[in-house]
Design a protein around this nucleic acid. Structure first.
Lengths: 187, 187
DNA sequence: CCGCAAGTGGGGGCACACCCCATTTTGAAG
DNA sequence: CTTCAAAATGGGGTGTGCCCCCACTTGCGG
């Protein structure tokens, strides 16, 4: 990033702001052209700043995603490892639920060259220490990874995104404590 | 349903057949117009038979969904309750994974007036007895419902749909046996 | 103050969903 | 077999949205 020109920077901010409003009102599938018009820029400008809808969505939610990631440290300091992890996962879930469509952009793009932009990474990094602590305390199975728990939360978010009738928090609770306590999954 | 006219019936079948091919090749987001053309009908005809893309998708997958539902009975007869349930859930998961995009249509439509068409119902009905048996055998927690387990499978399907890197079967295993064996979710 | 690269936006191309309505097809009654 | 009204059809029109081209404007280092 080689220092955007001043006017370009302004355009970018206006677009993100307009997008934030539009996403809140019409979901993340809001018309990009409408966003451009609201922002007072041409659609070409929007497309130059954000090559894809996804990029725009990530820019809009970057701040709040980092805030949720930061929450992890706070919880780790205030609660024992097990509950800290659980409550943080709940927080992540609630966060995605309050922004319909956000869940979709938190799952890593399959072919992404991984330039670190994806908000998924921030959450992954935040989960790591929480999970490690919970494992050390023997409250979480040793063979579970941060990617696993995040994937599960994300999966539930995606479901709740489409089916408002689903009780996402309940499902998270079930996934954590397990549906079948006795391991009947073997042979 | 008041007996479609013969030609209408023929059109309908040709559309479903063309759609099946198109969905396999381009996913469930394939162009409806292209499907209509392949089927040799006008786009208006397609839209009259299937008021929405979703309706068409459901028609295409109706048969195989019922087949998976039927599989439940077979497993129940051949295996003890616990493994039967687990293996059937695995089967449902694999089924959705082999048809990218299918997972989306298996989640019930929020406002649907529930005319029974939704393939979700068939799976729900199939899950019920399996789950009841597993509960009776004490291999599954008593507070879990059929809707719960299916929701979890569906959630994982949705995730895997978007992130091919996710190991869906592994996640299902985790959700069933639980991430945190000791219930650290309390207070 | 100048020049030019960075930045801009209107408008065009394209693809798709969805619908209107003149026309054809069906099938049952006479 | 003829007739004909209702059922079914499909070409084409409309609207919307994404994306890009390219002539034009603007910030800013010299």
């Amino acid at each position: 990033m080689k220092t955007l020109r001043a006017d370009a920077q302004r355009s970018r901010e206006r677009i993100v702001q307009a997008a934030e409003t539009a996403f809140r009102q019409h979901g993340v599938d809001a018309s990009l052209e409408a966003i451009a018009k609201d922002a007072g820029v041409g659609s070409a400008t929007l497309h130059r700043h954000f090559r894809s809808r996804r990029e725009l969505v990530e820019a809009v939610f970057e701040g709040s995603t980092n805030a949720v990631a930061a929450e992890a440290a706070r919880l780790a300091a205030e609660q024992p490892p097990g509950p800290a992890l659980f409550h943080w996962l709940q927080a992540v879930l609630r966060y995605t639920l309050t922004n319909r469509g956000l869940a979709t952009t938190l799952v890593p793009l399959p072919d992404e060259n991984h330039e670190g932009s994806c908000g998924h990474d921030a959450l992954g990094a935040a989960a790591e220490p929480l999970l490690a602590a919970a494992k050390a305390a023997g409250q979480v199975r040793a063979d579970v990874t941060a990617a696993d728990v995040l994937a599960l939360v994300n999966a539930i978010s995606l479901l709740a995104d489409r089916d408002p009738g689903a009780d996402a928090e309940r499902l998270l609770g079930l996934a954590i404590t397990g549906i079948a306590p006795s391991a009947c999954t073997g042979h």
